[in-house]
Design a protein around this nucleic acid. Structure first.
Lengths: 147, 147
DNA sequence: TAGCTGAGTTCGAAAATCGAACGCAAGGGA
DNA sequence: TCCCTTGCGTTCGATTTTCGAACTCAGCTA
């Protein structure tokens, strides 16, 4: 049972965890949410090796998290990588990571970037809530039922 | 600038992403949230190689996500791995992964486990909200400010 | 005394990653 | 026309990680 078998287990947690748990994939998604879209820009800003970058982009294309979109520059047609709706839906995952990072791994100095709600200027945080009563939940409030 | 340099960048997203983005780490945390605590049990249920398991547990101990707690069995003292408060605070990350998995990677058959709020029996989901106006936010509602 | 168990450690083989060079197609300039 | 540049990969040999099986070790147990 190798690592990749978690990607095909009938578990809605192990499948995303196996996909995003590959080295570089979370950092790549971070870069995408920060606005990077082109191969050269990923390579330059992350200093990832080109072959691994190719591989990770292809995996995310295959999983339909990203799509290749043509664009024009200097009269030439090229392609850039953009989030699909499925990809955009990963936003809460990244925000949960960031919320945790702010609480537990905040560097001494200033942040490298701030996020705020366009409409009201407020801050941004991830949370877990009950779909019925809308209470905020921690691990202790949740019961696991096998099968 | 190797992979590990993201773990020390002054960015509250890249640091957690680099830590949890190592192979096996997310799957290991999933197993821990499901209740596994002992070396042998991790090894048996995940079929991870023993040396990598040792390494990942040590990294999480060092980051203070896990702690080693002594327990007694058959009159012998052993240790088990348990979440610290910092570790328990990763719950929203795992729930965000699961919420995404339920929407986009749900297997045809039944889930391997269900989660529900102890108090009211409702479902569980992760979301992103504004700290001021409490509106639910998507990537489009959020503005990134450099520095 | 010998065997068992939990929790690792060790080590040679296999796989993943790295970095530097190479390939290639489509302009642009001389 | 020929050469140069750019963006986006591919290839390849060297280095790192991971794998899997065997080994270690301490403290019971038979």
């Amino acid at each position: 049972m190798p690592y990749s078998s978690f990607a095909s287990m009938p578990c809605t947690l192990s499948r995303p965890a196996a996909l995003l748990g590959e080295r570089w994939t979370l950092l790549l998604l971070r870069q995408i949410f920060l606005g990077t879209r082109r191969f050269e820009d990923f390579q330059a800003t992350m200093d990832i090796s080109r072959s691994v970058l190719t591989d990770r982009l292809n995996v995310l294309l295959q999983e339909n998290v990203l799509k290749r979109v043509p664009y024009h520059e200097d009269g030439r047609t090229r392609h850039e990588y953009r989030l699909t709706e499925k990809g955009r839906d990963l936003y809460p995952v990244l925000m949960a990571l960031r919320t945790w990072g702010e609480k537990w791994m905040a560097p001494d100095e200033e942040e490298s970037f701030h996020l705020h709600h366009r409409d009201c200027g407020g801050g941004v945080r991830a949370k877990v809530e009950c779909t019925e009563c809308a209470a905020e939940l921690t691990a202790r409030d949740v019961q696991v039922a096998k099968q």
